[in-house]
Design a protein around this nucleic acid. Sequence first.
DNA 1: GATGAATGAGCTTTCATTCAT
DNA 2: GATGAATGAAAGCTCATTCAT
Lengths: 198, 198, 198, 198
Amino acid sequence: MRTSDKHQKIIQAAIKVFARKGFFSARISDIAKEAKVADGTIYLYFNNKYDILISIFEEEIGKIILQVKLAIEEETDPRRMLEVFALHHLKLVEEKRDLAEVLQMELRQSNKFMKEYRNTRFIEYVDIISTIIHLGQEKNIFRKELLPGVAKRAFFGALDEMSRLWVLAPETGYTIEETAKEISNIFLFGACSQPMAD
Amino acid sequence: MRTSDKHQKIIQAAIKVFARKGFFSARISDIAKEAKVADGTIYLYFNNKYDILISIFEEEIGKIILQVKLAIEEETDPRRMLEVFALHHLKLVEEKRDLAEVLQMELRQSNKFMKEYRNTRFIEYVDIISTIIHLGQEKNIFRKELLPGVAKRAFFGALDEMSRLWVLAPETGYTIEETAKEISNIFLFGACSQPMAD
Amino acid sequence: MRTSDKHQKIIQAAIKVFARKGFFSARISDIAKEAKVADGTIYLYFNNKYDILISIFEEEIGKIILQVKLAIEEETDPRRMLEVFALHHLKLVEEKRDLAEVLQMELRQSNKFMKEYRNTRFIEYVDIISTIIHLGQEKNIFRKELLPGVAKRAFFGALDEMSRLWVLAPETGYTIEETAKEISNIFLFGACSQPMAD
Amino acid sequence: MRTSDKHQKIIQAAIKVFARKGFFSARISDIAKEAKVADGTIYLYFNNKYDILISIFEEEIGKIILQVKLAIEEETDPRRMLEVFALHHLKLVEEKRDLAEVLQMELRQSNKFMKEYRNTRFIEYVDIISTIIHLGQEKNIFRKELLPGVAKRAFFGALDEMSRLWVLAPETGYTIEETAKEISNIFLFGACSQPMAD
DNA sequence: GATGAATGAGCTTTCATTCAT
DNA sequence: GATGAATGAAAGCTCATTCAT
């Protein structure tokens, strides 16, 4: 019963433990203890250790995508949309620090130890950005020459790197709103005080 | 003798193996075989498996910092400096894909399994960007309101995310020069066709 | 109630599963699934996994002994008796291949993992042969010098080895009747074309 | 190095432990302790637990086949050959009781847990008997009608069943020579005091 | 009586590290 | 310095057995 109480308890425990120790250093018994179940119980709900990680990816990113899409739908200006995305992303990092940590670290190198697993949910998430960029280009708000494949990654990368800092050292001196605004601004208008020369 | 022939051979072998399998899945015997030395020999040059990883961080990032700083010194315009940094960074990723992969993946989560290790070389590298930004602000080329702590990470994050793509799927359709230029442009002038309203 | 419906269902399921996987590789849940009962139900009828195996020995060999004794009682000539025994034994192997397989394999090594269990039913079965031999000696049909302890085992061993073949590779090219006759003949009259020299 | 000292030490230890506890109940650590090596050392010489068992089959039966063939070559009369085979077989059981036990029990059910393994050495061993029988038929010493496929198994089965007794209860009251002679006699001349009627 | 989710002891196997040669 | 056989701790996973429902 995938939606049972135990399934969720184990997922949440695993997020905590993976965040604290990393996937490889985390022991099944750590997760079991954190979830207050027996070691063997974990194998009633998951096939193996990898399966727990994949489930975290699938289920938790799924929830996030839903939330972010919902929040963006309320905006019409692509510039505002990006800011909302940024705000949402950073808020999530703060509110669910453990999950953010797991997604940040383990998701990246998951392809190393789970050759067969393609993380489509993650791609889906990042593609929310490219959809916004396309929209902005259609509306003549964003430059036509912008390479969407690069731009979406530039924006996501900027956010992600800030998240990394937050995860590592929660106290940065900047508020979330401030940071989201700053990153959106840089992405939208650049760092220069003067517009592009050419 | 830390700079001995064997020391280097092991470091290079470890970069290859860590890139291929990830730090945890890599076995000492894999590295030894790749380096064409006996397993035990590795322990004449390194204290343990972690020590190899740390040495990669320290020594290889050290070399990169030197190179990048040298290249930037030839420029005077902070805008050009950022472009040169971007170009250099991406070039390195292409030329030393294995190293890039190790730095990208393992460096991030190193704090998980090596609690005591503070990666100062990495900070030093990213701080090249903040130095450029400060310079730009002093020269009134970059906006004064720019938060350097956020801006440096935004720029580095954008580059890093592109690198991640390159490492995962070498064929992206964009050239390095194109990508470096695009990222610099977005960072300098933004995505918008019109400058900031206010 | 030991003879209840469930008890029998479990026994029959266990015979199937033990035959297919062997005692050790068979899981209680396999047997439960085969018997269409819950895992826990098995423990209402048996103390543990070993107990199921012992029950198979006791109950199923019991039935066989009864049958064989009945069939032999109809004969008077010890030579015919042996042939009937052989025929019966081989027929059983064919008709109840799963049971035969379990008795052949697991019964043998049962003493390894069930130190305390003495398989008296099995001894009882083999002793049907020695009874026949004694009878034959009394009637001066069998040689007086024949060592009954060896002879009974020689006869049983011959049959058992043929059964082993049948269980492993059902198609041997010989019929049951042919084989039973051949083994009886060898046992009764030997392989030689000339009688014993001395 | 398959012929190293350790390889043999582990094989011999495994024979002892398998004989005592059976393959499944034997723990790797039992074998390691018996062989006076570390658990891990076993995996330098064998791929896994099954591999140890297979090696016992291959190597030890190989030795036995050589010995038996050598002993038989000295005889010319097929009747004597069979007696020599019997004697040799039973002697081996007495001299190497542990090995005999392992071969007897585990070899039988090996097909259960090692689906892919075909025990050709065992077949080779039993086929020594059929070669003798064929020779006897050619020389007109054994009856032409004898089915070699049945006869070889009858003879081997008789010996094997006696061995089983010996392994289980070493004291039977019969000497090896006596038993070998008796089994050969039964096989050659039958149990009857009078030759076959027809 | 029947169920099957939960338990946790137990075992195989891996691999970083050591050390005699 | 260099080797690689040997070590043994450690961890993922299985499954007989229990027990609350």
